[in-house]
């Protein structure tokens, strides 16, 4: 009984994704299931079309900068929280992970406001809205909580004696961090990197506020979707699915999926 119920739930989870994958290989002009003929024509289309190419590159650039940035800043914060003891530490932790529970729509519009302010302010006019650097800033804020929790989890399992041994043998504070701590929490760092990459790559609502012409992939999908349900959506979705599945497998092999469970707890 339990198995049957679970089987149905997993069908519910995966069936739509499987259908998208099958649909993406249609050779027809319109969506229709099952497709009457198969081919890779829509893959060729999304890979050669300028709009799709640009939005893909934008997403890739943004995520590739966000991931290391969030890993470094989040990693430093996680280490700081792990190694220090002060009053209000719990409050600082809650503050640092707050962007996770704050509705992203609110954060998105608030950042949009700041962007507009930067766009028009006298003296130091920066093009903030519709520029990739501002997407990077916004996404980094969103992804840091995930990095802090993932790296924090791996710091907790670290054997502190090894660091102490290095320091007794004369290693400085920073030498200990670089040669002992960082190699030991490598899995956590990789986890933080990949989570941040995926979250940034998939991010919709915050970018939706900031973007007008410089679209990212999720926004391009959305605007195409609102216009018409074209098979190109299925193809690009399948490519995104493949990328995330690949990265998720890397996470699993590093034992980091469990730490994602901790994020939610």
């Amino acid at each position: 009984m339990l198995f049957i119920v679970n089987a149905l739930i997993f069908i519910f989870i995966f069936a739509p994704l499987v259908i998208v994958v099958i649909q993406s290989f249609t050779n027809e002009n319109h969506m229709g299931f099952p497709p009457e003929s198969y081919g890779v024509r829509w893959y060729a289309y999304v890979m050669t079309d300028d709009d799709w190419q640009n939005s893909f590159m934008n997403s890739l650039i943004v995520a590739s900068i966000v991931a290391p940035l969030s890993m470094i800043i989040g990693g430093m914060a996680a280490l700081g929280l792990d190694r220090s003891d002060f009053r209000g530490k719990q409050a600082v932790f809650s503050y640092l992970i707050a962007p996770m529970v704050l509705p992203h729509i609110v954060l998105g519009m608030a950042l949009f406001r700041i962007g507009l302010f930067l766009d028009t302010s006298e003296g130091f006019t920066l093009n903030a809205t519709d520029s990739l650097w501002f997407y990077v800033v916004a996404h980094t804020t969103i992804t840091i909580p995930y990095a802090i929790i993932t790296i924090g989890a791996s710091l907790q399992t670290l054997d502190r004696n090894l660091e102490e041994a290095a320091q007794i043998l004369g290693a400085s504070y920073f030498k200990t961090i670089f040669f002992i701590t960082i190699p030991l929490i490598k899995s956590g760092l990789i986890g933080a990197f990949i989570f941040s990459f995926i979250i940034s790559f998939d991010e919709f609502i915050v970018t939706y506020f900031l973007a007008t012409f410089n679209q990212t992939l999720p926004i391009q999908i959305y605007s195409t979707l609102m216009f018409q349900l074209e098979p190109s959506i299925a193809s690009i979705s399948t490519l995104m699915l493949a990328l995330t599945a690949l990265l998720t497998l890397v996470l699993m092999s590093r034992g980091q999926l469990v730490s994602f469970g901790k994020i939610i707890k």
């Binding site: 259908i19 649909q23 699915l241």
Partner: peptide, 14 residues
């Protein structure tokens, strides 16, 4: 870890 947009457009097909 799959984009919400991707999953919602999948449901449109269903």
């Amino acid at each position: 870890l799959t984009s919400i947009i991707v999953r919602n457009s999948a449901w449109m097909l269903v």
